[in-house]
C-alpha cells in the first residue's frame, strides 16, 4: 500500500485504490450478496414481496437436496468436470513438456500461435464447429466409416461430445500454467535423472511433475471451474442424458421463472466448486497464492 503511494503519488494512488474498491464491492461482493439474498427467500408474486411470507429459509436449497434428478445431475456435473480437467491434463502435459524442454524457439512460436488462433473466435462458434464435426452425418463419422473403423455412424452427442468440446475449449488454461512451470525446470535435472538410470516414466513422476505441481494444480483448478460453470458445450454437444447442472439453473431462471430457486442452485454449485478446489490444493500442497500467480 505504502509502496503504491510511493510509486504513484497520493492522487493517482488513491484513484487506483478506489478503482479496486469499486471493482471488489460492485462487481464481486454485491452480485454475490444479492444472489445469496435471492437464494434464501421464497419465490413470491410481486404483491407479497416484503410481506409476512417473505422470510429467510433454506427451502430452496433443501428442494435441491430432495429432488433426486437434480441432485444426480449436480453430482454428475462435479465429477464430469473433474474428468474434463483430468483429460485436458493428459492432453496438455506431453505438449507442455515438449514445448518447454525440447522445442526450438520457432517451433514454440508456431505451436502457440496455432493453439491461440481458435481462441480469437467466440466460444459459441468454436463449440458449434464441434457440433458440426460430431454430427451423426458429419465429417468425423464419415471419416471413421471410410477407414472401416466403425460400421455405422456413432451418436457422439452426449457425454463424449461434451467431454471433447470442453477439453478443446479449455486447453490453453491448462497448457500455459504447466508450460510455464516446466520451462523453469533446469534441463540438467532431467539429464541427471537419466544419467542415474531412471526411466522416462520415473523422470516425469519423480522430477518433472513434482516441479510442475503448482502449474498442474492451477491448470486443473481453472479447467474444473470453467467446466463446472460451462453452459454452451453441454447445451450444444449434450444429449438429454448428459444434462449439465448449469442447464438446470438456466431453466429455473428463464423457463421456470423462479429466480430464487435458480439462485439457490447456483449458490450450491459455487460452494461445492470452491470446496473441491480448496481440497485439491490442500492435497497437492499448493497454496492459493501460488495459483494466483
Amino acid at each position: 500500500m505504502s509502496e503504491l503511494y510511493r510509486r504513484f503519488g497520493g492522487g493517482l494512488g488513491t484513484v487506483f485504490l478506489a478503482l479496486v474498491g469499486v471493482w471488489l464491492a460492485g462487481m464481486v461482493l454485491a452480485p454475490n450478496v444479492m444472489m445469496i439474498d435471492y437464494a434464501l427467500r421464497p419465490n413470491l408474486p410481486p404483491s407479497q414481496i416484503g410481506g409476512p411470507n417473505d422470510v429467510y429459509s433454506l427451502d430452496n436449497i433443501l428442494y435441491l437436496a430432495n429432488e433426486g434428478v437434480h441432485r444426480a445431475i449436480f453430482f454428475k456435473t462435479v465429477w464430469a468436470s473433474a474428468l474434463v480437467a483430468f483429460v485436458t491434463f493428459l492432453v496438455c502435459y506431453p505438449m507442455a513438456f515438449w514445448l518447454a524442454q525440447h522445442a526450438t524457439v520457432n517451433q514454440t512460436a508456431v505451436v502457440l500461435l496455432a493453439l491461440t488462433i481458435p481462441f480469437w473466435i467466440n466460444e459459441v462458434l468454436r463449440t458449434l464447429a464441434w457440433y458440426i464435426l460430431l454430427a451423426f452425418r458429419g465429417p468425423l463419422n464419415a471419416f471413421l466409416l471410410s477407414l472401416g473403423i466403425i460400421d455405422e455412424p456413432v451418436r457422439w452427442y452426449g457425454d463424449g461430445g461434451v467431454l471433447a468440446g470442453m477439453t478443446y475449449a479449455y486447453i490453453l488454461f491448462m497448457l500455459f500454467p504447466i508450460y510455464n512451470a516446466i520451462e523453469s525446470l533446469d534441463k540438467s535435472q532431467i539429464e541427471a535423472a537419466r544419467d542415474l538410470g531412471a526411466s522416462t516414466w520415473r523422470i516425469h513422476w519423480r522430477v518433472v511433475i513434482p516441479h510442475a505441481k503448482a502449474g498442474i494444480a492451477t491448470g486443473c483448478v481453472f479447467t474444473f471451474m470453467l467446466a463446472a460453470g460451462s453452459y454452451v458445450a453441454p447445451a450444444l454437444l449434450g444429449a438429454p442424458g448428459s444434462r449439465w447442472f448449469t442447464e438446470i439453473i438456466y431453466n429455473w431462471f428463464f423457463e421456470g421463472g423462479d429466480w430464487n430457486r435458480g439462485a439457490a442452485y447456483a449458490l450450491v454449485l459455487l460452494v461445492l466448486c470452491l470446496a473441491v478446489v480448496l481440497v485439491t490444493l490442500r492435497i497437492a500442497r499448493v497454496s492459493l497464492t501460488e495459483v494466483a500467480k
Binding site: 533446469d186 540438467s188 539429464e191 544419467d195
Partner: peptide, 10 residues
C-alpha cells in the same frame, strides 16, 4: 555418472 556444473540436485 556425471556431476553437473549446477549440481542438479533434486
Amino acid at each position: 555418472a556425471m556431476i553437473f556444473q549446477s549440481l542438479a540436485l533434486f
